[in-house]
Structure formats: C-alpha cells, structure tokens
Computed example of a mutant assay.
Amino acid sequence: MKLRKASAAAAAALVLALTATACGGGDKDSDSDTGSGSGSGGGDKIKIGIKYDQPGLGLKEPDGSFSGFDVDVATYVAKELGYDADQIEWVETKSADRENALARGDVKLIAATYSINDERKEKVDFAGPYLLAHQDLLVKSDSDITKATDLNGKKLCSVTGSTSAQNVKAEIAPKAQLREYGGYSECIAGLQSGAVDAVTTDDSILAGFAAQDKYKGQFKLAGLKLSNENYGIGIKKGDTATADKVNKALEKMVADKAWQKAVDDNFGPAEYKNEPAPQIGNIVK
C-alpha cells in the first residue's frame, strides 16, 4: 500500500515537471516565431543589419557603440517589437550582401540605406519607406557649382563601382572628370583638400559626412534631387507578420515626433533639407 502511494506521488510529480517544461518551451518558441523579445533586458536578441561606415546613418564609433539615423530608426522599431536596446545585436551588412543576409537568417531586419526597388522586392520584403532621399552633390561652402551641368570640366568623385557618378557623366555633364575612390570618406577628404570639386551619392549620406564635427561649415548640399531613393527596412521574403509590425512601429515613430528628432540629431549640422516623413507603402518613382 505504501509502495503504491509512493509510485502515484512520483508519477504526479513527473507529470507536473513535464507540463512546466512544455509550457516554458512553448513560450520561448513563440517569441522566436513572432520576432518579439521579452523586453526589460531578457535573454532574447534581435539581429539587425546596418552599415558601419556611414556617419549620420550607420556608424560604428571608436568605443564600439553605434550611431546614425538608421540606427535610431532600427532601435525604435526594435523597442516596438519588444526588444530593449541592449538586446539588439548590430551586424555589419555590406550592400552586396543584404539580400543573402536576410535569406540566410543572419539578420532579422536590415536598415542600411536600403532603397526599395522592383528588383530587390523580388528577393526580400520591405517595410516603409522611412526616408525619401535623393542623389545630390556635396560641394565646398564657397563653390559656384549650383547645377549638375556646372560639373563639366570639374572633378567629380564617387566610390568605385557606383552608378551615381557615371549617370551624371553620361546623362548630364559629359565633360565631368570622374574620380573613383575606395570609399566616400576618401571622396570627402579629397573635397576638403581640393583634389575634387564635388562628391555625389544620396543626399542623406552626404549630409551625414558633412555633419561631422571636423567638417562643420565647410561643405553644402547643392539640393539637386537627381533621383528618388526610398529607404526601406529589409525583411526576409514572405515574413509579412514582421513587415506589418515594423510598418506600425514606423508610423508611431513619425506620430510621436521621434522620427523628426532623429533627422535633426543626425543631419541637422549639415542643414539637410529633408523630405517630410513618407507614408508607408508610398514609393516615389
């Protein structure tokens, strides 16, 4: 009789232990599937792809911290998804590897000056856009370059392999002297020294460089709007649930003025004349 009672008690304890384990495992899997963290410094992490070398947008600082508009937007979105700032793992994501990084699952989101276009939409889903940028020129503050055709006979810089400078030379200023450097920081240094007369890429990227303390007051944006670049947050193809949540977070960021604050904080010193916050799903061609 005593043996029977002991066996029944052991069996009941085993059932309770298995039930608790199953419940705990179910909760963790649910967080993973929905992309929502536990918040308040819990154990879950979210990996977000950014650039490490674009001041004002995505920059890894010497102390290991991260700054920039893309970082601020991604941090806000992550919080709305349930992740505290210390639960974000920032992953350097080069432009050429963005689609593969999402497909492999290396990152959950990508906020890295990622322009939405039809070709990319075949491979990934996008939330946003969260910023409308334009191809522009950065010149010295006292430069007489006010329009793209003024580049004829001038030295125009962009990074090796970029289509932006090549498009200007082919379509607008065929007599421009194209200089291709390894990175935009080299182009900016060349502009400062007088080795080049203008630098071209997205105005947001140019504004980020111009806003650095060491360059304040030296440069200006020409404000030419040579193209429309709709920045979106990249998400793995087919993950519509996450895309919907990110879109809601972006709408909230605009509504509570945090979006404009991020623009002012990161681009303000360059006197960047940003477009108003774009409406979700409104892609400007």
Rank of each mutant, 00 (worst) to 15 (best):
S158I: 07
G281L: 06
G223R: 02
L137F: 11
L131K: 05
Q135C: 08
F66Y: 15
G58T: 06
G105V: 02
K237W: 09
K252S: 14
V168G: 08
D125N: 15
W90R: 05
E122T: 12
K273R: 09
T21Y: 13
I235N: 10
K225H: 13
K214C: 02
D244P: 06
A243S: 14
A13M: 11
Y181W: 03
D150Q: 06
K257I: 05
A195H: 07
D31C: 11
I172K: 13
Q54T: 15
D142W: 01
G190L: 02
D144E: 13
G58D: 04
T21Q: 14
A17Q: 07
L131P: 00
L57W: 06
L250H: 12
E92A: 12
L206E: 01
V246S: 04
A133F: 01
A255V: 09
I205V: 14
L14C: 11
A11G: 12
Y184K: 02
E89M: 01
E275W: 08
G183N: 15
D84E: 04
G268N: 09
G194T: 06
L178S: 03
T93L: 03
Q135G: 15
G190E: 02
D239H: 08
K2E: 14
S7M: 13
L206A: 02
D97Y: 10
V246L: 07
A10L: 15
R179K: 10
G182D: 08
F126P: 08
A176F: 04
